[in-house]
Design a protein around this nucleic acid. Sequence first.
DNA 1: GTCCCTGCAAACTATTTGCACCGGG
DNA 2: CCCGGTGCAAATAGTTTGCAGGGAC
Lengths: 169, 169
Amino acid sequence: MHDRRQSAVPDIESLMGQFHAYLSKKQLKSTRQRDLIAQKFFAAHGHISIEELLTLSRAENPRIGYATVYRTLKLLAECGLAAQRRFGDGQTMYETAGDTEHHDHLICIECQHVLEFQNDDIEHEQERVARSFGFSLVRHRLELYGLCPRARGIKGGWCPNEEQRKLSD
Amino acid sequence: MHDRRQSAVPDIESLMGQFHAYLSKKQLKSTRQRDLIAQKFFAAHGHISIEELLTLSRAENPRIGYATVYRTLKLLAECGLAAQRRFGDGQTMYETAGDTEHHDHLICIECQHVLEFQNDDIEHEQERVARSFGFSLVRHRLELYGLCPRARGIKGGWCPNEEQRKLSD
DNA sequence: GTCCCTGCAAACTATTTGCACCGGG
DNA sequence: CCCGGTGCAAATAGTTTGCAGGGAC
């Protein structure tokens, strides 16, 4: 079987290290705000929107502004630690990148929750398709949209969104 | 082999017919503007942005407004004839849908051109992954980003963008 | 004739930018 | 100290909406 649910969680320290390394290489400064936003971003470790990140950051420093969050996320994207992602609906989300192996997304169109998965067969086949067109494959993006067990009406069915709530209690 | 490069090109007449059927079913009206915009959209048959569609439509009727294009495209999306798509860069694109079988995208990150492909093995494997999480799969989105032969530096290499130019001459 | 549709402009939302002041190196 | 960073507010880009007049059925 070629599926793996989730790769190892990278530790925040190391990510902050990479971020600081990038900043000093580019002669940019580490500031309280940047560190705070990056911390919160790495800690969320999943999919987070600008709005959510701002809220989390303001919990510790209420004077953080939208612009700073945008600017910091742009920096994180430049050094490959964050990736912008726009799912079907409106909201632009960001996720950590570079740290973990590649993963794809499975999204419930009812409860909106996003799961991650990896499947080597699909990856190999993608490689083969690209080659058949004479392309070399650099990256890809795969999103599966469907209904989670709960949304399908299976009684007692598992719903990723409720799992999530349990975790955050 | 399970790849198919491109499904049959649907004819515009039939698409317009489907559109009109949807309109009358919903007791909505066929108007000059809607027909013009839908015609241009179907004729483009590939990936087109609101902006481009407006420009094309204004070539024949300069008084067409943005709002009408947005509203018409929303109608086309409702009846499954158009699908919104946001590739990595900023621009929101629309493409014809419903006409042909499902297809995925292969995009050259150098020349930006978009090819379409289908691969049944990948589709089946996606189905399997969704089931393994207890999900029922409704739709998906797969984009492969890479370098076309020309961009890879293969001399005399084939470049989708040049093929395109040849066609439009 | 009745509503729906259109074009325009104003409203909104998400994101970026200009600028005076602040603070890290 | 210097120059980049921050916060605010204003600007911008993309999309939606309200409304008065026009057109399909």
